[in-house]
Every structure is written in structure tokens, then in C-alpha cells.
Amino acid sequence: MKKRVLVKFSGEALAGSDGYGIDTKILDYIAEEIRELVNNDIEVGIVIGGGNIIRGVTAAADGVIKRTSADYMGMLATVVNGIAMQEALEHKGLNARLQTAIKMEQIAEPYIVRRAKRHLEKGRVVIFSAGTGNPFFTTDTAATLRATEIGASMLIKATKVDGVYDKDPAKYDDAVKLETLSYDRALEDSIKVMDDTAIALAKDNSLPIVVADMYTKGNLLKIINGDLSQCSIVK
């Protein structure tokens, strides 16, 4: 059987040094990393956040915009990123499908799990956007939900660090990398691998969460093939 994984990218990762919008060089780099996976017969699903455009929690912070509306704005931001990722993947010669949790037929397919699985079986990369389609749920939770629904063997959270630390390594020189940790420890110690809802859902479904540096070329393929030296795993 082919390996099937879901890779979660933050929206902020697409912004590059500008901190906002989409850096096409980073988009191209990610597409190349995904192409390497597909070329090795790995079925790939992708979830991308929307923080490079707008974050629901931030938009609703001062009360001018209601949280529900702000979260829907954030969902639409993930669709913008999904369109960009689809274009980048197709530019690399890959077949890609964008599915949304909110219907917008002129732009993307509606999310249907059976259709998503069929796309994956045919070697197409499937991008899941618009979160879960519900406010108050993050794209971390959406990624865990979609990974569970499609039967992914692992959820890879591609970040700017090479794993999970007991404290912020950018602020503390004595931060210790945690090679492995349990779901319970991540929840009890508030180690922000993902939000608590996502971790609890992963625990309920025995879905491993791998945290890895997206900027280490070839790292995704190494992880999927069993080399966990450059990442942390929650299981």
C-alpha cells in the first residue's frame, strides 16, 4: 500500500520575510518538496493556515468584528492560500485538487471525503481549505480532522523549528528539544504543538503528530521514510 500523509503549513510560512501576503519563492519551494513526495509514491493531503492574510482571533480582538465573522474571514484566507498552492503544484507538473469546507463551486470542489480519497488514490495532491467550515476551530484542528478522515498514517506540522522544545528556543538558550512526547504530556504541560482540541482528536484516533522544520530540504521525505532525527513526534 502507498503511504498517505497530511502536511500542515502555517499561513505565516508563506509570507516569508515580509510577514504578510504570499512569497512565491517559498510557495515554489514547498511545491518542490511536495513533488518529491509524490515522485516517491506518497499520497499527500495539505492544509494551510491563513495567518499571512488574517487571523480570526486577532481580527475579533477589539470587538468591532464578531468572532464568528472574523473566523469566517480567516477561513476565506485559507482558500486564497489554497488557490496559490494549487497553482504552484500544477506549475511543477503535479495534479492537484482544492477542496473547501464552505461551498464555492466556481473556485474549488466541496469537501467530500470519498472524493478526496479517490483523488489521493489517483496520485493527486488534495488541498483542504476553509478549515472545518465552522468558527471557533483552528486549522490545526482541521488538519487533524482531515488526516483522520482520509486515513493518513501521520500528520506532519511543517514549521520554522526542527521539533518541539520545553520552552521557546528563540528566547531561551537552555531550551531542550523533546524527541518524543505523549499526547497527555502535550496537553497537561500546555506544550503548544497544536491547540488542545487538535491534540485531543489526534489522541482519540492514535494519529502521530510530527513537528519538523519545513526549511530543511528533503526533510519531509526522510520523515515519511522513517528518519525521525530532525523532528519531534507526539504519539
Rank of each mutant, 00 (worst) to 15 (best):
K160M: 14
K177M: 11
M75G: 03
I224K: 09
V7Y: 04
Q230P: 04
E188H: 10
G133F: 05
E90D: 05
E179V: 15
A130Q: 01
V193G: 05
K122D: 12
E12A: 14
A175H: 10
R118D: 12
T148F: 01
G56P: 02
D166E: 07
A84K: 03
D227E: 12
Y72E: 07
V64T: 15
I209W: 00
M154C: 12
A84N: 04
P208V: 09
Q230K: 13
N81F: 01
P208M: 10
R35V: 09
V47A: 04
V38C: 02
Q99I: 12
T144D: 01
D168L: 05
K8Q: 05
L98D: 02
D173H: 11
I233R: 13
G82Q: 03
I107S: 07
V211M: 08
M1P: 10
A101L: 05
I30L: 13
E188N: 13
V38S: 01
N81Q: 02
K8S: 07
N40S: 06
I83L: 12
V211C: 09
I224Y: 04
I53Y: 04
C231S: 15
L14Y: 01
G151A: 06
Y183V: 00
T216Q: 15
G49M: 02
G163T: 02
K117I: 11
R67F: 01
V176D: 09
K103P: 11
F128G: 03
L207T: 00
L228N: 13
Q86T: 11
Y111N: 13
K235L: 10
P169D: 07
T180F: 11
A202Y: 00
A84L: 05
L6A: 11
R97N: 10
I209R: 00
D204T: 10
V161W: 05
V64Y: 15
S182K: 14
A143R: 02
M194C: 04
N134C: 09
G50C: 02
S69P: 06
T68L: 12
G50W: 00
V38F: 00
R97Y: 08
V57I: 14
I83S: 06
A15R: 03
Q106V: 14
L89V: 05
A147Y: 02
I46A: 06
S190Y: 12
I65W: 01
V210M: 06
I127L: 04
S17H: 13
P110L: 13
R124V: 10
S129Y: 03
G50T: 03
I34F: 01
S229K: 13
G21W: 01
G16N: 04
V5Y: 00
K157E: 03
I209K: 00
M104D: 14
Y215K: 14
L37M: 07
A96Y: 01
I83Y: 02
E105A: 15
M75L: 06
K235W: 03
M1Y: 04
T197R: 06
N39F: 10
R35L: 08
D62R: 15
N52D: 02
L178Q: 14
R115I: 10
A61P: 13
D18R: 15
T159V: 08
Y29P: 05
V113L: 14
H91Y: 12
I65G: 05
A59P: 07
N39D: 15
K25E: 13
N134F: 11
K3I: 00
T78F: 01
P169K: 12
A175V: 08
Q106I: 11
K25C: 07
I224G: 09
